[in-house]
Design a protein around this nucleic acid. Sequence first.
DNA 1: CTGAAAGCGCTAACAG
DNA 2: CTGTTAGCGCTTTCAG
Lengths: 318, 318
Amino acid sequence: MSEMTVSRVLRGRGEVSEATRARVIAATRRLGYVPNRIAGGLASARVNLVAVIVPSLANMIFPEVLTAASEVLEAAGLQPVVGVTGYDPGREERVLYDMLAWRPAGVILAGLEHGAAARAMLRAAGVPVVEIMDVDGEAIDAAVGISHRRVGGELAAAILAAGYRRIAFLGTLMPFDHRARKRMEGFEAVLAAAGVALAGREFYSGGSALAKGREMTEAVMGRRDDLDFLYYSNDVIGAGGLLWCLGRGLAIPARLGLAGFGGLDLIDGLPVRLATMDACRREIGREAARIVVAGRAGSGARVELAPVLIPGETIRRP
Amino acid sequence: MSEMTVSRVLRGRGEVSEATRARVIAATRRLGYVPNRIAGGLASARVNLVAVIVPSLANMIFPEVLTAASEVLEAAGLQPVVGVTGYDPGREERVLYDMLAWRPAGVILAGLEHGAAARAMLRAAGVPVVEIMDVDGEAIDAAVGISHRRVGGELAAAILAAGYRRIAFLGTLMPFDHRARKRMEGFEAVLAAAGVALAGREFYSGGSALAKGREMTEAVMGRRDDLDFLYYSNDVIGAGGLLWCLGRGLAIPARLGLAGFGGLDLIDGLPVRLATMDACRREIGREAARIVVAGRAGSGARVELAPVLIPGETIRRP
DNA sequence: CTGAAAGCGCTAACAG
DNA sequence: CTGTTAGCGCTTTCAG
């Protein structure tokens, strides 16, 4: 049999008689033959690699998105190639360049903010490009995510409705974490519309998020102990803060309310359930992967997921 | 200038005059040219992809290993391609096959237990193969990890030295999590040598690990409330158990001792620091990547890291 | 320092 | 259903 027949059998394309198919299978297995996809990719201009670019793997949000995406991609015979940018636009550009050199079947990357060169590369890629996590801005092609501004605003509204007024924000100190920034902006905008100004802010970087949540909470409460609500930019620091408050015996949510963000399942194991909003990370991973699997570049698909407030036990009932 | 000259400039190989180099750079940038690595890989039989195969991304251990590996690989111009097996040998084999089809520059994969077909493929790969996390067994080529049996044994010895005798083990219900199994085996062996039998066992699967830690602890203590030590197979369920115990007002570590495994930095934010042993995940990722970067297939390199007990505040001082 | 020729191992597109 | 013929876009090798 010719190499061509072998190729047809291994790819499951074209009509091949059952007899030759069996012979091919037997032979390839006996020889331990693994077809060379590099040659295959070059010949067919079709590649099963999908670039997935995330800022970090330290924040559980991204491994979860990646897991969900990976499941859908695998089912379609595609493979993720992961790149980590560390929230650094320069690194994002380099990683993207390196990945596009493999002519992937699609690109999934976090955020809507990218350098000019990155945008140019993505527009020229000719494959589905899905920007994930965020929908507040212009997408290059497809986008799947949530509106962080709206999420921040809705939480602010819920807090105000519950009667809290002396409110602080605790978050990460990362100039390029645009989504955290947008949550805070949406949050402040709604407070401002109600004539309420933020009564405190605290930012951290590095280290154990749980411990930092604890420290920041102590710091912000030490500075001004009449605060009645603390909004954390993620659930892990929120959990740390909650544990600190419980240790202090603060009355929650009567005296002090708390909320985080992400909807991590960590929440379920805390002594008191922290209020949060789901980041929809599994749906985002799945939907983004589906768009890539569909394979239509320039679809402009836009999926906005609407996370709801999970009030838990750390916000007073209005 | 010929395509050849362009190739030389872009790869930084061979002597090219400064003038032509500049012209090439300008032209490629103007055209947004991204060289095709598929063609390059086929022509040169050299590829910058490294297969990294892990059982899961839900357990923070693996994203951390991946992050550390990714840093070292990136610095050497290599890219990780991630595969997730879900602790399933069949999936491991398929993922491995798919990755080897790309003729990667190296393979990093978790564990020493693999199916016969997987082992054959790895032996035939002709590139560095690094089995990570575990050193209790035969490696195909290189291995970087810790001895889980020893880790389990050392913890058992520490517990016995502290005077605890009615000891339970709480872990995950995963037949293919060989490392958790080895920790438990090492643990039981040392207990047995001292004439102590496990006084309880509890296993879980799925769901929020923190919440499961809570539930399992409640279950095991409900079944037999004279237990004086609980050994958890990971820090997250350990943290859940610790929070449950603190909520119950149990005297820790006087009445009840606790320990986890992993050395996650989650530990730092708990009200009481849980005893644990470092899984050395960053070192493992770094060392494994270094071996791949060195590029010597069949080196048989073996790096055994020696995690130490971090006693925290949940084991009595002997 | 620069160029020309000859593939790398497959698959698309035709022929039989 | 099976085989043949051309490349895919680079890099290797060898000449200038």
